[in-house]
Nucleic acid binder design. Structure first.
Lengths: 103, 103
DNA sequence: TCAATAGTTCAATATAATTGAACTATTGAA
DNA sequence: TTCAATAGTTCAATTATATTGAACTATTGA
């Protein structure tokens, strides 16, 4: 059984958030998640089919460990949710400000 | 003679800005620059004496090539200025929002 | 039971960061 | 005008991180 590691809200760092969102691929993932405002599987959230699934898995791990998404396994797939509330508690307004300029 | 390369305002990218500011050292450099609101030499702007000057030079280059600072040589030292106006033209409000959370 | 699906982990390679040493350019003093 | 000091760059080597294919785990549904 795979256990996912998520930082607590107070452990979310600015460098972690910025570093996670600095990658265009990861920014697009987060951007597509906020648009749907819903849980998404990894392949659904990643608008980039020509990428190794191991790389994709890596990107989701970075987002997870930065405290940006929460991942849970439901059946055969992962469900990813944006941790908007937690990020806003830690850095009010930051996420929206960044996502304003995504794509 | 060393020539510094600076991107034009429209070539400043979100990934570039976020990536540049994702490093704690570089964020501190930018943070110390906005506080003084003035030109600063590299060693003056970098509040971290125990770091190789080649590494410092590398960090200033990243900031420069991301379009965050402008560097000019005056006498024996470099003068660095924050490109606040350019960044705000490209991504209004973003820089302030990020720097709000930098210690 | 077994193939299909969704993703992780691992080992290898490719790319980026860090550093010491050698270099350039400018100043200021002998 | 020579020469040491200052401020930073560039280079080559090391270290760290990213990317990928292949093998693996876990769950579903036929």
């Amino acid at each position: 059984m795979v256990q996912f590691v998520h930082p607590s809200t107070e452990d979310i760092t600015l460098s972690g958030v910025l570093g996670a969102l600095a990658d265009p691929m990861r920014l697009r993932i987060v951007s597509s998640m906020i648009k749907k405002n819903d849980c998404m599987s990894c392949s659904e959230a990643a608008p980039c089919p020509n990428m190794a699934k191991s790389t994709l898995s890596h990107h989701f791990r970075i987002l997870r460990e930065a405290g940006i998404i929460r991942t849970g396994k439901v059946g055969v797939e992962n469900r990813n949710v944006l941790r908007s509330e937690d990020i806003n508690k830690r850095f009010p307004g930051l996420l929206d400000e960044i996502l304003k300029f995504a794509d």
